[in-house]
Write a protein that binds this DNA or RNA. Structure first.
Length: 680
DNA sequence: CTTAGGG
DNA sequence: CCCTAAG
């Protein structure tokens, strides 16, 4: 469809490349799950992790080098026509709706296996599901679980993550990077914080809540095949996980508004490093990404820093390096900036694990613990208490539909990148895995597989997984500025938006990282009208003692996305520039006033004096603003843009600038004179 | 970490 | 706003 100048591509699904297959040669994804102790959540996490690995780290070092100059996803995506099953993204007809196969998990070796309906035979299980759902705690558990999952995933394949080599052009460092297990703690924490925050705020779409099970089928299942295998550890009670490293860091940067006026003790504590720390983190991230990426050869991934020059003195060298490397990638942003990608309807799409053996392979296999692929799972009875494993072979996942809009004038390369971004965004931050059993969502993550009825003896065919867009993950892609007071929870975001790299930072996302700038806008002015942010979220149990959750904009982007992914997808986000927040007149006023008093060479003091509460205004920002103010004051009103600044203020700017410039000059003179004197 | 400037 | 070189 052509919309005026834009083309809209509707992807009903992407076929995620079989990440490891080519690299490893073969094998289908296999999940060994202990159907007994395993919690449903673990299963989710497992699947999610798997997905991440597939999508995100697909480029296992070997693979990366083996084939691509461009991110595989992007690259292939446009060549849908090609029948390269393994790497081609499937562009399907835009129709939604006719897909019911979505949730199928077939049992490998299930042939001849007589599966009984667990639920049928064990009604109590069904009840269990209902009974255990405590809305109140569900979310919390969820987040914690995710954390756990994250850990698990991290621990499991720390070195496997990271590296969708997305080189854009030869010569340019790629965005790819590897986590090499060296991600800064702070960073990790921050993310976790965000996630938790989201959860707390209730932004998390409780997909597990009460939608119609059928909802899942809204979209046709896509096929994503994976080959790696995941072994879910024995009964791990997510909640019991030590969350040692889940510390909530007060992101006083942009993200939260609460800290603005009423810094909690903890706030104070972190303050010094808050904003800056944030930046630093970003940089670190960037450095890692950039650094490792270019050389994803193998091995190097785990020690990005290691390759620094021998004599490198800690940080400095490091920084320098990163800088040079990240430059070029940065410029690419522009390309992406122009297109926006969004998913059509936040619908829940399903990832089907289906039997469709396109290649004669069953997509999901369920076998016995020992893992003999097929035909196993013999006669285990419904309640085998032991650690019987449910073996699932997920052939593919369907990524939720993506709608991409891009100007006709964009280049194919741009389109590719855009799609890649979209895909990455989805995979990275916007998805959650859901489990379906016989069409019904299994919402209680605490249930064991057995309890949920997911066991070898049951109809595994009826087991399905879905990738659900994570509503939480959608930073305002287009006009991040002045983020209106966004109420976290409400504002249903029906659709998943995939902020183009440029937009967010949420990513924001952060967006980038994330970016997450949502409420803060208020905070901004808060320095003047200190109003306690209403959004403070009290961290219930999640933040016991030491960690204080300061209102994390519920929007923090990728709330719960499966960890690894986030990182990755974020890599671009992390590097994203901060959202633009034009100074308001009141801010200008405050700035002018402060400068009049302090002068133009003491930005830190100015910051402290007038913007101490505006977390997102750094002294550098203030200095820059002053610079622009001076410029603005000198140009004709017609040439000025943006919110008009009262002439009165501009006049003051000029006079103050003149005054302090003079002062500075004088000081310099004095200095020189004294120096001269000393020399004589 | 701060400043000061260029981009 | 970002990035950096210099203090």
């Amino acid at each position: 469809m052509v919309l005026q100048k834009r083309l809209e591509y509707g992807f009903n699904g992407y076929q995620v490349p079989r990440a490891s297959r080519s690299a490893r040669g073969r094998g289908s994804v296999r999940k060994k799950v202990h159907d007994n102790p395993m919690c449903a959540f673990d299963l989710l996490a497992t699947v999610a992790g798997k997905l991440l690995q597939e999508g995100e780290s697909s480029p296992a070092p070997a693979k990366a080098s083996a084939r691509n100059d461009q991110n595989p996803l992007v690259k292939h995506n446009l060549e849908a026509e090609q029948q390269d099953e393994e790497r081609t993204l499937k562009v399907e007809p835009f129709d939604q709706g006719s897909c019911n196969e979505s949730v199928l998990v077939s049992g490998l070796g299930s042939e001849g296996h007589n599966r009984t309906h667990f639920l049928k035979e064990n009604p109590q299980v069904q009840n269990a599901v209902a009974l255990r759902q405590t809305p109140a705690t569900r979310n919390l558990n969820y987040s914690e679980k995710f954390t756990c999952a994250e850990k698990f995933i991290k621990g499991k394949s720390r070195n496997e993550f990271g590296c969708i080599p997305s080189k854009e052009r030869k010569g340019s460092p790629s965005y790819g990077e590897s986590y090499g297990g060296k991600v800064e703690d702070g960073t990790v924490r921050e993310r976790e914080t965000q996630k938790i925050g989201s959860v707390i705020n209730g932004t998390l779409p409780d997909s597990c809540s009460s939608e119609d099970p059928m909802e899942v089928d809204r979209k046709p299942p896509a096929l994503i095949s994976s080959d790696s295998s995941v072994d879910i550890p024995l009964c791990r009670d997510p909640i019991s996980f030590p969350d040692d490293d889940v510390k909530v860091v007060n992101r006083d940067d942009d993200e939260n508004s609460s800290g603005c006026t009423q810094p909690s003790p903890i706030n104070v504590k972190f303050r010094p490093s808050g904003r800056i720390g944030d930046r630093r983190i970003r940089k670190l991230f960037a450095s890692k990404y950039w650094k490792a990426a270019p050389k994803l050869s193998d091995g190097e991934i785990s020690k990005p820093d290691g390759e620094m020059k021998p004599f490198s003195r800690n940080r400095k060298t490091c920084c320098t390096r990163q800088r040079s490397q990240r430059n070029s990638p940065f410029k690419k942003r522009k390309l992406l900036d122009q297109s926006s990608v969004s998913t059509s309807d936040g619908g829940i799409s399903s990832i089907g694990i289906s039997n469709s053996a396109e290649k004669g392979v069953n997509e999901v296999t369920i076998g016995s613990a020992s893992g003999t692929s097929s035909s196993v799972a013999g006669q285990q009875t419904a309640f085998q208490p032991r650690d019987s494993h449910v073996r699932l072979s997920i052939k593919s996942f369907r990524v939720p539909e993506l709608v991409i809009e891009i100007p006709e004038t964009e280049t194919v390369g741009s389109l590719k990148r855009t799609v890649m971004e979209a895909v990455t965004a989805v995979l990275g931050g916007g998805l959650r895995v859901g489990v379906l059993l016989q069409g019904k969502k299994v919402r209680d993550d605490n249930k064991t597989l057995l309890q949920a009825g997911i066991s070898n003896d049951n109809k595994l065919d009826a087991l399905g997984f879905t990738l659900e867009p994570n509503p939480t993950n959608s930073p305002p892609p287009v006009c991040p500025e002045d983020p209106p007071f966004l109420l976290p929870c409400d504002a249903p975001q029906p659709i998943n938006r995939y902020p183009t790299p440029a937009a967010l930072d949420p990513g924001t996302s952060e967006v980038s990282l994330v970016p997450p700038m949502t409420n803060l806008a208020n905070c901004v002015e808060s320095d003047h009208d200190s109003v306690p942010s209403p959004i403070d979220v009290s961290k219930d149990k999640i933040t016991p003692d030491s960690r204080t959750l300061v209102a994390i904009p519920a929007m923090s982007v990728e709330a719960l996305a499966v960890v690894p992914f986030n990182r990755k997808s974020r890599q671009s986000e992390l590097v994203q520039r901060r959202i633009r927040r034009p100074f308001s007149v009141s801010e200008v006023e405050a700035l002018v006033q402060a400068v009049e008093k302090l002068g133009t060479g003491r930005w830190r003091d100015v910051k402290l004096r007038a913007f101490d509460n505006a977390k997102h205004r750094t002294y550098v920002d203030l200095k820059d603003k002053w610079k622009t103010l001076v410029h603005t004051a000198r140009i004709s009103p017609q040439q000025r843009r943006g919110e008009p600044v009262p002439q009165e203020l501009l006049d003051r700017v000029l006079s103050a600038h003149a005054y302090w410039s003079q002062q500075q000059a004088k000081q310099q003179q004095v200095k020189q004179q004294s120096e001269t004197c000393l020399l004589l």
